[in-house]
Each structure stands twice: as structure tokens, then as C-alpha cells.
Amino acid sequence: MEPTADPLPRLRALCMALPEVTEKLSHGEPTWFVRRVFVSYADRHHDDVLGFWCAAPPGVQEELVAADPQRFFRPPYVGGRGWLGVRLDVDVDWEEIAEIVTDAYRQIAPRKLVALLGDVNGR
């Protein structure tokens, strides 16, 4: 799979488009918060993977890693809590990334903020 152009601006735009999201550096990497962390960029910080880590609904990490280990992984530190690692140094499906980011937001954001999203993608 071919790497995509610098994915950070596109990932940042997806995260910042969600209600009340802020960006801060955490452990030297851009990280997005909605009260708590929901997505953290990973620019080869812990390994040689360019990607991000995010909150995920129960069972999603196992499902996606099993289905496509070239694109998804169990990230260090937070993988044991069900967080998902997503590679951005491969051919990236940005529609899928947008869904993953929105699902991460839904896991962390307060209900009143999640309600602002409406019934996106039938969820």
C-alpha cells in the first residue's frame, strides 16, 4: 500500500469539526480532547508506525485488528482498554477514518455533546 500525503492536517480537521474539541500536545504529539482524550496522533513516537490511537466501542479493536492487521493495531499503553490503533502510512480510506474518529468522540464526549451530532450514519 502506498503512503498518503501528510495525514495530520486531514486528521486534525476531522477531530476539530466535532463539538467542543480542543487540541493540545500530549507526550509530544497532537492530541484531541472533548473533556478527555479521544484521539492521539502517533508520528512514529513509540514504534515505526505513523497513525493515531483512539477510543473505540467495545469489541471494535479486536474485530478490526483481526480483519485487517495491516491497517489496524492494538496500541501500546491504551490497547488494553480497548483503544484502536489506525495506520496512516498506508492507503487511507478517509471516509472510514471519519467514522472511526466520530465513534471515538461518541465514546468519550458527554451525552449532551453526542446529541449534537444527531443520528449520523444510523448510529
Rank of each mutant, 00 (worst) to 15 (best):
V60H: 05
P7A: 09
K24A: 12
P57W: 00
R74A: 11
N121D: 15
P9V: 08
P69V: 06
T102F: 00
H46M: 11
R87H: 08
L18Q: 09
E63L: 13
R36M: 07
W32G: 03
Q61C: 05
P58H: 07
L88Y: 03
V60M: 14
R10D: 07
E63P: 00
Y77G: 10
R44A: 15
I108A: 06
A109I: 07
N121W: 15
L117W: 05
V101G: 01
G28S: 09
Q70P: 05
R123E: 12
I97E: 02
A13P: 00
R81V: 01
Y41H: 12
D89I: 05
W94H: 06
A115H: 06
D91E: 15
R123V: 04
P3V: 09
F73G: 12
D43L: 05
G122P: 01
A17D: 13
R74P: 02
W53S: 13
V49W: 09
N121Y: 13
L18T: 10
P58F: 02
V92S: 02
V49S: 04
P58K: 09
R36I: 06
G122F: 08
T22Y: 03
G28R: 11
D119H: 14
F52H: 03
V65H: 02
A5K: 13
G59L: 11
P58C: 10
L84D: 04
Y77N: 09
G51Q: 02
H45P: 10
P3I: 08
P19C: 07
W83S: 11
A56V: 10
W32M: 08
D68N: 15
E2V: 12
F33L: 12
P7V: 06
G80D: 06
G122Q: 08
D91S: 13
L14Y: 01
P19R: 05
A109Y: 10
A42N: 11
V92R: 04
P69M: 10
A109S: 04
F72W: 09
R12A: 13
L88S: 04
V21M: 03
D119F: 03
F33E: 00
Y105K: 01
D48S: 14
R10C: 05
T4N: 08
T102H: 00
V49Q: 09
A56Y: 01
L18C: 03
